[in-house]
Amino acid sequence: MCQFCEQYGDGGKWYLNPKNYARRLYKVRKLETEVKGKEADPQAAGMGGGVINAIIAARVRGDAAAEAKLKEDAVKFAYAMHFGQVVTLEETLEILDLAYPIAKMTCACRRVQWGLADARNFTCLGIGPGMYKWERWPETYRGGVEFLSAAEAKEWVMLTDQMGLVHTLDAFGTPYIGGLCQCDYPGCVAIRNRLDYEFKFLVKGEWFAKVNWERCTGCEKCIARCHFRAMGMNVNTQKALVDPLACFGCGLCRSVCAADAITLSDRNLNPRLKDMW
């Protein structure tokens, strides 16, 4: 079980625990922004942006010890305040029954990485009472917000799954969960920084994918769905491969498999993977 389930799960998964969507937990935004004041550092844009600049500088200097220390400190802070975790489509749909209100909003990461126009960028879901603050800090919610019913949000999330976007949740003042992203590599700053710099701001999901080669037809549709560099084709058998050590358990490969060859297994029950988050 991941450390957050142990601490905040009450025996289950922490993100399926309704307590972690409660209003009394919502406070980090105020602390963060009001202390910072009006000046903002454009180079710190995006989740963990300031840290990643320092990590890149250390890596370019060849200072592995400094890079490791930066990550250790940043991850400790992130896990106490603001970090992300990969979740499956089914879990996302369950969360949409727990959280209220739900609002579609523009994705800060994709704005940072692509400069994506607001009208094309409504891929984030803001959830919980934090969304009522959107008018106070409109830059965070650039382009406004669109409040949705749970049914509308589910329909939207299923569409983003078809589009091939990874579902992740975001803590804002752990264990308060305030965001459900649907994003991609490299559009998602968290996915990118994890894959390119091993910065564990983004935690793996509770699952990992397996391919049943009896069923796999070798159609290759799943390969392009993986954002985590965990999939390829086995040249000899012409079947899909999943690297379990690289898999984040998002389930996007599975949802496109017409042969039902891909299943998700519980990371916690695998002796090799249970401590790899």
Partner: peptide
């Protein structure tokens, strides 16, 4: 995807105007 864009100022009750964004090569 070396470049990123970010705002130089954040305001209460209004969005940052477009001329206050800066692009730079974060992932150089």
């Amino acid at each position: 995807s070396v470049f990123i864009v970010g705002e130089t100022r954040v305001y209460k009750f209004r969005e940052t105007p477009l001329e206050e964004f800066r692009v730079y090569g974060r992932y150089y």
